[in-house]
Design a protein around this nucleic acid. Structure first.
Lengths: 212, 212
DNA sequence: TATATATCGATAAAAATATATCGAAAGGAG
DNA sequence: CTCCTTTCGATATATTTTTATCGATATATA
């Protein structure tokens, strides 16, 4: 357990976790890799292999105790160890993320948003404040923030990234549809919705072609 | 060109497209796969191979004419052929997506949102209406909608998916953190933010471990 | 005009990822 | 108690995806 975990595996673990939590609430005390695989439309060997990097609790013939597996995944994903983050860009998307409380259960605590629109400065979303850009350095330092979330338009994203890096950010979650240049030590995770949309749209086209 | 395009390739094409549009605005008339690769931090052979499924305009020593390549990608991704979609769940995320006009340039036109909260029925976001759930069948039929976007909480997502399928949806873009059971003919694209977050968070942990 | 170089597109090699197979263990059935 | 079935975990195979290599071609330069 805990060797080199592939990126693909890593991105499936939260999916397992959320399924497990759902099934646990429904009263399922034990669950097998085969069951998980069927529910998610995956291969059972893949599920078992994925889980093996976070869990040692699987038992032949029985499967995994749901609650134990949930805890193992939470530990592995470090969801108990909450990290602070700030959002830059309090447009619709920024506000949506700011107001969404669900991230805390994934170990992410969004403490504030920043925007250069003076009308927004001083307002808040669900008690989470929106500040003027000037306040960013102070807030990041005081709140020990090392994760930045960029939800600005593409053309300002690079400047924002530079600013975040200057203020000690170690990881950037980038929702702007552009690629960022940052020092190698800074982690960037791009969340490009156009990408998903392209996959969806192309599959749909193929389907419509075939249906003709 | 146009053989079996892998999902990975497909998801990179919109990224290339948006870079090309940016560079074209900046006056770059020709661009090579090597240049694109360097700008995006990818391998140049991969870029060339990806582009080959949508383009035939590459010339040795010259590269690609930026405007031609942009058009080729748009045609391949079918961005000119706009498709209508509806959103179900007009919470923060739903509203953000409803109000975001950027999707039209990706061939997606969101015509309306639906929510079971009666306070929201009759309101609108940037002239895009929010209706009560009862109106869904009529709107979907009248507006020829075949794409549904689910932004409800996880526990209602399956019922919404069933409703959408019943009303003729062919593709679902699912933002709810749960997996949906739909007929095999219906395409589902899951947009799971926890997944991205897990990757980011784990990379960050590794980094912090190494920095110690 | 000949030569050098950047680039493409195709094919081959390497790496990553997914799937299949197999023995061992746990529990239930006869 | 023995046999049968389910399941795990490990190893082996297959597939997919990425990266490297190579010849051909277009352009620039001497």
């Amino acid at each position: 357990m805990n060797k080199q975990v592939s990126k693909r595996t890593l991105s499936r673990l939260p999916v397992y976790l959320s399924l497990l939590q759902e099934k646990y609430r429904e009263g399922m005390e034990y669950i097998s890799a085969t069951t998980i695989a069927n529910l998610l439309g995956l291969n059972h060997v893949q599920v078992r292999k994925d889980l093996s990097c976070a869990s040692t609790s699987g038992r032949p013939k029985v499967g995994y105790a749901t609650d134990v597996l949930i805890k193992e995944l939470q530990v592995f994903l470090d969801y108990n160890n909450t990290k602070n983050a700030v959002i830059v860009g309090a447009g619709d998307l920024g506000k949506a993320l700011l107001g969404y409380n669900g991230f805390t259960s994934y170990g992410l605590n969004i403490v504030a948003a920043f925007d250069n629109n003076p009308d927004l400065a001083g307002t808040s979303v669900k008690n989470k404040p929106i500040f003027a850009m000037e306040k960013l350095p102070r807030v990041m330092e005081n709140m020990d923030v090392h994760i930045g979330i960029i939800t600005t338009p593409a053309h300002t994203a690079q400047a924002i990234a530079d600013l975040l890096v200057k203020n000690g950010v170690m990881a950037i979650w980038n929702f702007a549809p552009t690629s960022l240049k940052v020092p190698a030590s800074v982690i960037v995770q791009n969340e490009n919705m156009a990408t998903s949309l392209a996959v969806l749209s192309t599959k749909l086209n193929e389907k419509m072609e075939n249906d003709k």
